[in-house]
């Protein structure tokens, strides 16, 4: 649908700009407030730009509030989720390109877990982790989230489209299965994998519920768990809260801006009409 008149075009653009400002307002306010002093942030009427911009809030996060530890933990989780992505890719390839006994049954398992709400497995999975003696460990935080059924499903859908002849030819040339997977399949799957890498990064950077349940010890907190703790403890220090939030949000926004092309295109590739 194209707008007919100049006026219509103006109204549409105006609506978009107005909506865009409303959408970005919380981000802008967060960043501006994070540079204000504790006093200024509570000032009425509020100032738009910080009068004496200060990095104090950010320094405080790292000097006194263990955000350096939380950052390291979050990065560890991000790293392991990438390992998980590799396992998911392998499984997607296995389901897409191999014939073996019980394939349908195992794939049903994947489909069933895909549709499951997280709250239903939250308690039993915690009990399993507890029986394994993994509560309050990094392993316990990372392990249950490694495999994402939906990702296996998506990657399998792609793998099915890879021609068998290509793999057969490589086998005839004497290439081993693992060599084929890493040197032939992964490069072929690059478009879909690059989307998954970004989505996995975002999801693991943001992971909240599982670390919250498993980690009792501040030493194991992730940024998001640390931030929700900070909000409890420094309920009125909004400058500090905004700095903590900005520290979580801004890196993701930057990564998103850089890679958004792949993400948005990935949506068109995934075939949702």
């Amino acid at each position: 649908m194209e707008p007919k008149s100049k006026l219509e075009k103006f109204i549409v653009t105006f609506l978009l700009v107005f909506g865009g400002i409303s959408v970005s307002l919380p981000f802008i306010w967060m960043i501006l407030s994070s540079f204000k002093t504790e006093r200024e942030v509570l000032q009425i009427p509020p100032t738009l730009f910080p009068q004496n911009p200060t990095f104090q809030n950010y320094l405080e996060l790292f000097q006194n509030l263990n955000f350096d530890v939380y950052l390291v933990n979050t990065l560890i989780i991000v790293f392991f989720s990438m390992v998980g992505l590799l396992l998911n890719t392998m499984a997607g390839y296995g389901f897409g390109k191999f014939e073996f006994r019980g394939k349908e049954i195992w794939f049903m398992v994947v489909l069933v877990t895909m549709m499951l709400p997280g709250q239903i497995t939250m308690i039993p999975t915690y009990l399993i982790i507890n029986e394994m003696g993994l509560t309050n460990t990094m392993t316990g935080i990372v392990l249950p989230g490694l495999i994402v059924a939906f990702m296996i499903f998506l990657i399998r859908q792609f793998m099915v489209t890879v021609p068998d002849d290509l793999i057969e030819a490589a086998r005839l040339d004497g290439a081993g299965e693992i060599y084929i997977f890493f040197k032939l399949i992964i490069p072929l799957a690059k478009p879909i994998l690059s989307v998954q890498v970004i989505l996995t990064f975002i999801a693991s950077w943001n992971s909240f519920l599982w670390p919250l349940i498993i980690a009792n010890d501040q030493r194991l907190y992730t940024l998001s768990v640390g931030l929700s703790l900070l909000q409890d403890q420094y309920a009125t220090n909004y400058g500090l809260q905004m700095a903590g939030s900005a520290f979580m949000v801004v890196p993701i926004l930057i990564i998103f801006m850089i890679f958004q092309k792949y993400l948005v295109e990935g949506f068109n590739v995934s075939g949702i009409k």
Binding site: G19, G20, F27, M242, G244, S245, V249, I252
Partner: peptide, 16 residues
């Protein structure tokens, strides 16, 4: 711009 909120952390967003 409209997609931005979807990628950001819900805890940070809720705090803001």
């Amino acid at each position: 711009i409209y997609y931005m909120p979807s990628v950001t952390n819900i805890v940070a967003i809720a705090v803001v």
